[in-house]
């Protein structure tokens, strides 16, 4: 913090832009502590603790496998159905948790926001990180399932970090929007669970996106999670699960737009957070 010793701060209406990114860097410690706090607190006073990070995705997987695989007899594309479901649930659960957590994050930290200065972007960002911890736990569960079915992924698995980054961007972008909107419109407290529930069915989580007719594939990929999930399946399952590249790039573009506009919107509304929260 020495570098700030003789700094001069000028506060003027609408002119905080210049310092913002610099401040974001200075406050990186807070970013770390907020994520750390949320992780630490997350499973406090629960009996099974971190095991919840395993129980939740596994139970969802079982249900989706029964409903889509057994009852609806959806095609699995040559892999065990649980594996098909879990490889999609990994990014989906991450997205869903990150969306709910970051959506509520600003309001949950209202006390801090109205009493101390720091770049507010840190708050939703650190909630995404917190959700990422659950993602890592789930990834371990997936590895166990893969060993169980003796499934060996192809070289595509090396691209998994790329798809993870896309999932991260999608979650962060959506989180930025929702958290900023939640400050003014608490309606989003009710909208988010709905979107999350709904999204599970309109995204190819319980089924393979190959069941979507070819002519609708591109349109379907407007849902950014379609590109992310297809990417995950391609990287992990390989074989019949070929990625539909035009759709993937469209999803990536949508994510890009959401995140850029999300940051702009967040920055614009951020200065009044303390007044309306």
């Amino acid at each position: 913090m020495e570098e700030t010793a003789r700094q001069e701060i000028i506060i003027e209406a609408g002119k905080s832009e210049r310092r913002y990114w610099h401040d974001l860097w200075l406050y990186r410690g807070l970013f770390y502590f907020l994520a750390w706090r949320d992780i630490l607190v997350r499973y406090k006073q629960t009996v099974v603790g971190v095991a919840w990070g395993v129980i939740r995705p596994v139970l969802t997987m079982v249900i989706l496998t029964v409903v889509f695989g057994r009852l609806a007899q959806m095609p699995s594309g040559g892999v065990p159905y649980p594996l098909l479901v879990f490889s999609a649930m990994l990014p989906w659960q991450f997205f869903a948790t990150a969306l709910s957590e970051s959506g509520n994050s600003l309001v949950a930290n209202a006390g801090m926001i109205s009493k101390v200065y720091f770049p507010r972007l840190i708050v939703p960002a650190s909630s995404v990180i917190t959700s990422f911890v659950d993602f890592l736990i789930s990834a371990v569960v997936l590895a166990v399932i893969m060993v169980f079915y003796r499934h060996v992924p192809g070289p595509g698995v090396l691209l998994l970090p790329l798809f993870t980054a896309l999932a991260f961007a999608a979650a962060f972008g959506a989180g930025l929007w929702v958290s900023a909107l939640m400050v003014r419109y608490r309606d989003f407290r009710f909208i988010i669970p709905f979107v999350v529930q709904f999204g599970l069915y309109i995204s190819p989580v319980g089924f393979s996106s190959s069941v979507i007719p070819e002519k609708w594939r591109l349109l379907y990929s407007l849902n950014p999670m379609v590109g992310v999930i297809d990417g995950f399946r391609w990287a992990i399952l390989g074989g019949e699960h070929q990625i539909y590249w035009p759709g993937f790039w469209l999803s990536a573009l949508v994510v890009g737009i959401v995140i850029v506009l999300g940051i702009i919107n967040f920055r614009k509304t951020e200065r009044t957070f303390a007044d309306v929260i």
Partner: peptide, 11 residues
């Protein structure tokens, strides 16, 4: 810097 001024300037 918790909230922004409407007018004026602080150094």
């Amino acid at each position: 810097r918790i909230t922004e001024p409407t007018e004026g300037r602080i150094r």
